[in-house]
């Protein structure tokens, strides 16, 4: 067993080299230096995979959304009487327009608990959500049930011709102190 191994190892340098003899400073990479580069290789691989994953994630969010218009005309101030909760725009736009003694504001019809649509109970002067029983005052402040915060208000302003415009792209949250923003109401 031993003889052929030794003879071959001895005869190896004698044999005419079939390929160029490797030197340490050769451009070809030997095993040791390959291992040295391995972490970098894996890092590059992981980076590409992560980048690809990010692209797929981004793919889930389209650039253009074909959803109904986010702003609408809501008549003039005189269309609303003080103390009234108007349900005219609930079905189409998901907005209650409320006029109290001083101002007009637009309340979102989306319950802050889990997104059901509450009902306006005029006799009890409150919004009551059928899903989990959250209750809101006319102002939108939550007072009963599991809702964690008040209903949101939308941007509302008067156009140049005196018509009320409700813009749903901008919302105002009471718990962030945004209801004092003049964009969130119209003085009546």
């Amino acid at each position: 067993m031993n003889t052929p191994v030794t003879s071959s190892s001895q005869s190896a340098p004698v044999q005419p080299p079939s390929r160029p003899v490797q030197k340490p400073d050769d451009a070809n990479m030997d095993r040791r230096s390959f291992i040295k580069w391995l972490p970098l290789g894996w890092a590059a691989f992981a980076a590409v995979v992560a980048g690809y994953g990010t692209l797929v994630l981004r793919y889930l969010f389209p650039n253009v959304l074909f959803e109904p218009k986010q702003s609408f005309l809501a008549g003039t101030i005189d269309d609303y009487t003080a103390g009234e909760v108007s349900e005219r725009f609930k079905e189409r736009y998901g907005v209650w327009v409320v006029r109290d003694s001083e101002k007009i504001y637009a309340l979102s019809t989306v319950c802050t608990h889990l997104g059901c649509t509450p009902n306006w109970l005029a006799s009890e002067a409150k919004f009551k959500c059928p899903c989990h029983g959250s209750g809101f005052y006319k102002t939108g402040i939550n007072f009963e049930g599991p809702a964690p915060r008040p209903l949101e208000r939308f941007k509302i302003f008067l156009a140049d011709d005196g018509e009320i415009v409700v813009d749903k792209t901008q919302k105002f949250q009471q718990e962030k102190g945004e209801w004092i923003d003049p964009d969130s109401y119209i003085l009546a």
Partner: peptide, 8 residues
């Protein structure tokens, strides 16, 4: 949004 592909 990722789940619904929209805001509602």
């Amino acid at each position: 949004f990722a789940m619904l592909g929209g805001r509602f």
